[in-house]
Amino acid sequence: MSALRRHIHPGWALVAPFLLLVAALYLGPILNILWLSVTDPEPGLGNYQKLFESDSLLRIFWTTIRICLITTVGSVFLGYSIAYAMVHCHEKQKSYMLTLLLVSFWISILVRTFSWLMLLGHRGLVNNALEGMGVIAEPIAFMRNELGVLIGMIHYMIPYAVLPLLVNMQSLDMRVMNASRNLGATGSQTFWRIYLPLTTPGIVASSLLIFILSLGFYVTPAVLGGGKVLMIAEYISVQLLVTLKWGTAAMLAGLMLFGVLAMLYIMSRFMKLSTVFGGSS
């Protein structure tokens, strides 16, 4: 008994009530949703069967995954460049860049989404300017399509990509890169053979983070997609609020939950890898 007590920090006793409260408030609804998915409108796996029968559902699934993948690749690529620039520029420029990054972090997603409409919409700043200069005759369709959704999502996700990469890059020992140069490697050889492998944990971490976050995107596809790009989150909300098919919505939510958990599991494996990489120079 006392041996057991020694292993449990007394601090837990203090936070236990709140932990229980949080668990109840989170787990309760989640279980409720999972329950709904197998009971509404009738008990059984009917909701899950729809996945294989309904073409539109499948299409939504693929749209979601495609958009999430492109968003992930795009924002990690841009985020990598930004993080790289931040790590390798002067201290002062770095703090400017970090401030800008955090500012965009803090601005509401709604504001950021609508500003894209102002900028790139049919009658937006860019189209107006281009038309005014006579470069184009018709407005370019940046918005109200998949491109618009991608622009908005990638823009929103970049800070999420930068932060894990920044942490990763900052922890690198620059002497290792110097050693590579000293051994005769060119800049690009050093990048591909040393820098990139050493920043892989950061790339994996930010990719998974962004992919998971993108899956649940609602506002951006709804606004910038103009109703033409239906992603899963929006579809779930339609099922809940318009068609009132709670069972279908619960099934989709459940699937997303498990998908995310599976990816978090993979991510945790990679995070462990990252400490193996980082701690062994």
Binding site: D173, R175, N182, L183, G184, R193, S281
Partner: peptide, 27 residues
């Protein structure tokens, strides 16, 4: 630096942590 062909042993060694000893030496 990369054209000078000087060998260097860094303080803290600065080995390539993701490569084997063989690949480190042959780099």
């Amino acid at each position: 630096a990369e054209k000078r062909n000087f060998g260097m042993v860094f303080q803290g060694y600065a080995l390539f942590p993701h490569m084997t000893v063989r690949d480190n030496i042959g780099y």
